[in-house]
């Protein structure tokens, strides 16, 4: 129960950022089954506490995934990249992250085209035969490698020498300070005090 008050963070940020709840929810739900299967054995091994740990894992994942989604939705991937550089994350990792973000769509469409081409030539067979997966994936890797090479050439021809310039020059404002302080206090107090229980006792006290 002490985890539930933490949900006020994603709820408040979603509302303030004017992001549709369904957008965040639909993406969180994609992840949930994986997490569910990750913790499914907990109740088997520990019949009493297992259910508690499973629900705790599910709640924590929902909080983490929704917060990460909110960060990308409200900040934008380039600003995140810039912030990571300010936090001294090596430029190679930051650039890799940004390129993955950008080329995910291109790669997904490539995979889609390859699978379609494969299906069109195996109309009587359901799905893709296991024997085809090897060459199909190999081909995709080779194509990805070639594409990565071409992109790298394009980058060095545009003067890229390892440093990633986003053009962003953000300054830390008072508003940012208030934001950080507020949410830090919020998380620390919710972590060390059982706010729901305190609130519950307070409400009961008022009404009695």
């Amino acid at each position: 129960m002490s985890l539930l008050p933490f949900f006020s963070f994603p709820l408040i940020i979603t509302a303030l950022g004017e992001i549709p709840f369904s957008f965040i929810l639909s993406r969180v739900l994609i992840i949930e089954p994986f997490i569910f299967f990750l913790g499914i054995l907990n109740p088997v091994f520990e019949p009493v506490r297992g259910w508690l740990s499973l629900s705790s894992i599910l709640l924590k994942t929902t909080l983490t995934v929704s917060s990460a989604l909110l960060l990308v939705s409200t900040t934008g991937i380039h600003r995140i990249g810039y912030a990571l550089r300010l936090l001294f994350v090596p430029k190679l990792f930051v650039f890799q992250l940004l390129l993955i973000y950008k080329y995910m769509m291109v790669l997904i469409s490539d995979v889609g085209k390859t699978i379609l081409a494969c299906k069109l030539r195996s109309l009587d067979i359901k799905g893709i035969p296991v024997s085809t997966w090897g060459p199909l994936l190999g081909n995709l890797i080779l194509r990805t490698y070639k594409r990565a090479e071409r992109i790298y050439y394009a980058m060095i021809l545009k003067g890229f020498e390892g440093e990633y310039h986003t053009g962003t020059n953000l300054k830390f404002s008072y508003l940012d300070l208030i934001y950080v302080l507020f949410w830090s206090c919020f998380f620390i107090s919710f972590r060390f005090f059982n706010i729901s229980s305190i609130l519950g006792r307070f409400v009961i006290g008022v009404f009695s």
Partner: peptide, 20 residues
């Protein structure tokens, strides 16, 4: 597509000048 590796058109066109 090999040459447009940033997110927006602006960032793609700005990539070279920024590197300079």
């Amino acid at each position: 597509e090999d040459q447009l590796f940033m997110t927006t058109v602006f960032d793609d066109v700005a990539f070279g000048p920024r590197n300079f």
